[in-house]
Amino acid sequence: MIKEYYQPLKLAEALTFLSVFPGPVHILAGGTDLLVNMRKGQIKPEGIVDLSKIEELKTISQEGDNLSIGALVTFSELAAHPLVQELISVLACGAKAVGSPQIRNRGTVGGNIANASPAADLVPVLVALDGVAVIAKQNGLRKVPVAELIVGPYKTSLEPGEIIIRIEVNVPPKGTGMAYKKVGRRNALAISRLNGVCLLKLEDEIIKDVSLIIGSATPTPHRFTDVEEYLVGKNISQELLEEAGVMAREHVLAVTGKRPSSNYKLPVVERLTVRLLQVAWKGDKAYA
């Protein structure tokens, strides 16, 4: 039974509440995961701290090479933000791929990370951008790469009393090609069968830098560094991309082993990889 529901206006107040509340306490951002889990009876909070009125957690700003995204920024706000559209359009693609307008209006960036679903749609983009979560506790801050914060399906290394306050991502250098794709059983309100993101920097047809993730294929989203390393320094060509596709597929197989879903997922991982690279290479839009 919920004994206390607290809606502070300041981060400090939220942190204090978390540190003193005696029973099981949960953070509520948009509530689009939390309330579902409560209804299913999977969690039974006694205290709830609702962050949705804390303005300091809702800003998006550019700081040098970084874009800082407040944890309470909603998918809709993220997708519509001029800095995002201008600098990292692939973030907007990831945000738009989520659920439906209702869910995008409520669901937050921080919630997508903290929920740690292997099928999360925005998390792979944050990881591809080497996103770092800034986490506050009553007596301090720590910074953890998003890729490390998520330790397993629906598991993070967040400790009781901690709040993700913002995510800092690298702004890719000018001329970086970007691609994002979600594969679902329907075109809205779909849990990703697979999703993927790719950032590609070329110099005279030589791959200088690449970041590749196929999400929803492995228990936690991570950069496919083996594929990336293979690509860097090579002359880009269709054949090379095909090779990358095969490697990505082997990468997934190595991580997950053969599963009932492999029949579908493995070949699609391969094609998706090729297509993401193609769009990042030649596409004028980030959507694959």
């Binding site: 329907r186 075109n187 809205a188 779909a190």
Partner: peptide
């Protein structure tokens, strides 16, 4: 249980 949405 997936029903088509307007986008489908």
């Amino acid at each position: 249980y997936l029903l088509p949405t307007s986008l489908d």
